[in-house]
């Protein structure tokens, strides 16, 4: 959205200069408005951190030392020495794989249940109170019970992701379905769409702004939960990498892993947001 304002701000001057200059100017403005400010703040924070942690007796390493300690990990993210001793890219991919399975299951089940609850008053009355209670259970509280149920760590982690991500998806979907304007239903009734056509052509697109806000919250929660869950289950994965680093006092590795976790979480959020914008073009949330 702010992109369009920067372009609009450029419009009056656009008559004279040639296209490539305009383009370069747009890029420059975008850089100045969106990239420069966080960069400056980041530099400032890193400098403060450097100053604070280079003093003798500091508990945490300064950024310069983090960089030199972890240089091997940074330049070779794909090494594989067997077991848990693999590069950070593999660790993150392992976590992402678990998230992908758990999240996809949550999307399928969550949208279906959301549609059910949104469509049927009886399902709403029966299920909604249960959902409201279950959704407050912290993700990790599900881990022991799922370990007991699955007898295996990997499906348990996937289940924790699933159960974490599903609530916002169910709730947002059902709200979206219940907010479909009567007019759209009437259009569907006049042209006599059957149930399946109504679902695909009216219900999903009409509710998609809500559904996608649920999906976006869900993916964020999944990523939060996977790191915590992996600390407990072990194996390859960024969560256990952090735990393992803590146990062997590799503080610099932990800091590097945190940066990666943050960046990946940010990217996941952006990808879902982008998909949402693509799918819901034209449909603004009510």
């Amino acid at each position: 959205m702010s992109d369009t304002t920067s372009i609009a701000g450029l419009a009056p001057a656009s008559a004279a200069p040639p296209a490539w200059r305009m383009h370069a100017l747009t890029l420059y403005r975008r850089f100045a408005q969106h990239v420069l400010p966080p960069l400056v703040v980041l530099m400032l924070l890193v400098t403060i951190w450097e100053l604070l942690c280079t003093r003798p007796g500091a508990a945490l390493p300064p950024p310069s030392q983090v960089l030199s300690d972890t240089w091997e990990l940074i330049i070779d993210p794909f090494f594989d020495n067997g077991g848990n001793d693999v590069g950070l890219a593999w660790q993150i991919l392992a976590s992402l794989e678990r998230v992908a399975y758990g999240y996809l299951l949550a999307v399928i089940a969550g949208v279906s249940l959301g549609v059910l609850v949104g469509q049927s008053t009886w399902a709403l009355r029966g299920l909604d109170p249960i959902f409201q209670v279950l959704r407050t259970v912290p993700p990790l509280a599900w881990l022991p019970i799922s370990l007991a149920g699955f007898q295996d760590s990997n499906p348990s982690a996937i289940f924790v992701i699933f159960i974490t991500a599903i609530w916002p998806i169910i709730i947002n979907t059902s709200v979206g379905i219940r907010n479909i304007p009567e007019d759209y239903r009437n259009v569907a009734r006049v042209i006599r769409l059957n149930g399946i056509e109504y679902f695909w052509k009216i219900m999903l697109p009409a509710a998609s702004p809500y559904i996608f806000s649920g999906l976006r919250i869900g993916v964020g929660l999944s990523w939060l939960a996977i790191v915590a869950a992996e600390m407990l289950i072990g194996g390859v994965g960024i969560g256990f990498f952090i735990w393992d680093a803590w146990n062997s006092s590799r503080i610099s590795d932990i800091i590097l892993a945190l940066v990666y976790v943050g960046v990946v979480g940010f990217l996941l959020d952006r990808i879902v947001a982008w998909a949402g914008r693509r799918v819901t073009r034209g449909t603004t949330p009510a």
Partner: peptide, 18 residues
């Protein structure tokens, strides 16, 4: 309801995503 009695609403009721 049916297409033999087509309705035009006051608020147009176009589907905004189409």
């Amino acid at each position: 309801p049916g297409p033999d009695r087509a309705l035009v609403f006051q608020n147009h009721s176009l589907l905004p995503w189409l």
